[in-house]
Simulated scan of single mutants.
Amino acid sequence: MLIDTHTHLDSHKFDSDRVEVIERARAAGVYKLINIGFNRETIQTTMALAEQYDFIYAVVGWHPVDSIVMLPEDLEWIGSLCAHNKVVGIGEIGLDYHWDTSPKDVQQRVFRQQIQLAQQKRKPIVIHNRDAHEDIVRILREENAKDVGGVMHCFSGSWETAKQCLDMNFYISFGGPVTFKNARIPKEVLSRVPLDRLLIETDAPYLAPHPHRGKRNESAFVRLVAETAAEITGKTLEEITRITTENALKCFSIE
């Protein structure tokens, strides 16, 4: 029984066959999914999915690329949603220095605000990090994010960065890119992550694993990530499935 800990099934890329995509995930052994709402539109559609399906949970937050448009009432809204029994975390939040849509200082302010909100609501946080490793680690440390912990989503950094995040109570999550043949560093990092801190995800519809690279990703493909993790760690698929599922349930406090 697999858990896809990071997916976007509410994406418009699934508008024509969303029900079938969810059914394929279930048929592939994915028995729980965590959908991410990261702005005004997707928070609403994520909540709708979580309320429609008993096996879909919600993580809600404000993505760094949209930091420039977040209003105080948006932060209050995210906080109010934390009382919902299907909301299991705040995210994806963090920093993205690749896309030049929100100034770095604005991204960092919004990031800090949401870490503080997570501490108030006692929710784990899901971190988006693109080209911002040093600032991510520094802000997590300065804001005492270890108090709530969470997930380094689709981790792409070095082992040194991973170790710093592990020391702050974070799980390290791997998606499709770790299956790529040229993914030397992600494979090396996965091999060194303690098994009790390992998670898997798809980030569907993005970052499809091999052999679907370049195509639309979907939650059923999390099994391919699990197979790669098993190969790298020398565990069986069944062992990796059990380990990552137990980790996800613990991280997000899901019964």
Rank of each mutant, 00 (worst) to 15 (best):
Q44K: 11
F55H: 13
K250H: 12
E76K: 10
Y171Q: 06
S80I: 07
A28N: 08
L207T: 03
A28W: 06
A183L: 01
R184V: 10
L95N: 12
V60G: 02
V60L: 03
G61R: 02
Q108H: 15
T245F: 03
N169V: 03
E218I: 12
T46M: 09
C82Y: 13
I136T: 14
C165K: 05
D74P: 03
G234N: 05
T179K: 02
K104R: 15
I3G: 04
E201C: 12
M1V: 05
T161C: 11
G214M: 07
V193R: 02
E41Y: 04
L190T: 01
K146E: 14
T7Y: 02
W62M: 02
F155M: 11
E239F: 12
Q120S: 09
I139K: 15
P103Y: 00
G175K: 09
F174S: 10
K123P: 06
V189E: 07
V126T: 07
E160Q: 11
Y53N: 15
D54A: 08
V60P: 07
V148R: 07
C165E: 05
I22D: 10
A226F: 03
H8V: 02
L195A: 00
N169S: 09
A58W: 05
Q108G: 14
T236I: 10
R122S: 14
F155T: 06
F111V: 01
A229T: 06
V137S: 14
A248H: 06
Q114P: 10
D96H: 14
A208S: 13
A58G: 09
T236N: 12
K250L: 09
L75K: 12
K32P: 06
D4P: 10
R40I: 01
R40K: 14
E188A: 11
D131P: 14
M1I: 00
G37I: 01
D17Y: 09
I56H: 13
H153M: 04
Q44L: 14
H8T: 01
